[in-house]
């Protein structure tokens, strides 16, 4: 029997509307409200053992405490599966369903699922982390939403293969998965070309992504006093690649001490990067990480100092997510070390 805990808000919990949105989380044995329909849809394989009810305002104003408290409640019932909502177009309810699902998934390591209208702000916040069944924008869509949620929930609980978003009814999570098609790529390209020429409908296999932007920081006020750090994606490492950074799809970065190093030579440094002809960097790694010049500028007083450590990884085929994770980690170290600016070199 698959043990299920269900999460709903104060309205669906029958406590009250907006005036009761500040109630703290509580847990009740068995089903409450929409849990009835969910129970029917789940059938004999699963049982809703408990229902968490929380006020939408309370949750959103106290996300950390509320999540922690709910997590404790859920844990006590030892569930195999966690279902939240559906939240339809209710913004705060959607954010609560998404947050609670993610917390349960991350901490209890069990499958989670919720349902929302595509425009719910909770969708963009959580679609990458959890399965969200696409629902109508109001509770009138309950009758369609519940069976879809139950069906996918059971699949998740039984660790079955999950189909494509359209087949299963969930909102695409931005996860790329390999599949075999019936035609080879060249034939698909020619078919697409003919469709495009004729003005017929065609479906691209890879829609272009949107890129987010970060506003530039103010400039360095006094370069003569500034501590500058080097970062590179060109894979420059001490000879022998002590951290064994991969030549492609790097899963790590290296942090190396430049104390006493005035020039990178063929005997002391090399590149671990597998995406470009390494000959030039292996002969003189200053061509990628200009330590020699920075030391001169340091002596001449053009800059305050070159930071003691440099950070290096291999940009070749390395996922944006990994690169982002590396930088998030070492940027904090750079701040702690009082670095005022970074020169990042790429190959």
């Amino acid at each position: 029997m698959i043990r299920v805990v269900h999460y709903i808000n104060q309205f669906y919990g029958g406590i009250g509307g907006e005036e009761k949105a500040d109630v703290k989380p509580e847990i009740r044995e068995g089903v409450v409200g929409p849990g009835m329909a969910l129970k029917a849809a789940l059938g004999a394989e699963a049982e809703i053992v408990a229902t968490v009810i929380c006020g939408d305002s309370y949750f959103n104003e106290n996300i950390e405490e509320a999540s922690a408290a709910i997590l404790e409640m859920v844990k006590r019932y030892n569930p195999d599966l966690f279902i939240a909502g559906p939240a339809f177009n209710a913004g705060r309810y959607g954010v609560a369903c998404g947050s609670v699902c993610k917390a349960v998934k991350d901490n209890l390591n069990i499958p989670v699922i919720t349902g929302m209208f595509i425009g719910n702000p909770g969708v963009d916040m959580f679609k990458k982390d959890i399965y969200i069944i696409e629902t109508a924008n109001a509770a009138t869509g309950m009758r369609q939403a519940i069976p879809a949620i139950a069906k996918l929930a059971l699949k998740l609980a039984k660790n079955e293969d999950i189909g494509m978003p359209k087949e299963e009814g969930y909102i695409p999570r931005g996860v790329r998965k390999n599949i075999f098609k019936s035609e080879r790529g060249s034939k698909r390209a020619v078919d697409m070309l003919v469709a495009k020429l004729k003005g017929e409908k065609f479906e691209t296999e890879y829609p272009m992504p949107d890129f987010d932007r970060v506003a530039p920081n103010p400039p360095v006020a006094d370069m003569k006093k500034a501590k500058i750090a080097f970062v590179t994606s060109g894979g420059i490492v001490p000879k022998g690649n002590p951290d064994r950074i991969e030549s492609s799809s790097a899963s790590k970065y290296g942090k190396y001490d430049l104390t006493g190093v005035n020039d990178l030579t063929a005997e002391t440094y090399e590149t671990a990067h597998g995406g470009y002809d390494p000959t030039y960097a292996n002969i003189d790694a200053d061509r990628v990480l200009p330590v020699d010049v920075m030391r001169d500028l340091e002596k001449e007083g053009v800059i305050g100092e070159l930071h003691r450590y440099y950070y290096s990884t291999v940009g070749n085929g390395t996922s944006v997510a990994n690169a982002k994770k590396f930088a998030e980690t070492f940027a904090q170290e750079l701040i702690k070390d009082g670095v005022q600016a970074v020169i990042l070199t790429s190959t």
Binding site: V220, A331, Q332, I335, Q340, L344, T347
Partner: peptide, 29 residues
Amino acid sequence: MVKEIERAGIPVVHVCTVVPISLTVGANR
């Protein structure tokens, strides 16, 4: 990486050959 360093509050300059990629990934300098 360049964007995360910038996001952390440190001004960063990206020295790179393929400027269009740098523009696409969102480097500012």
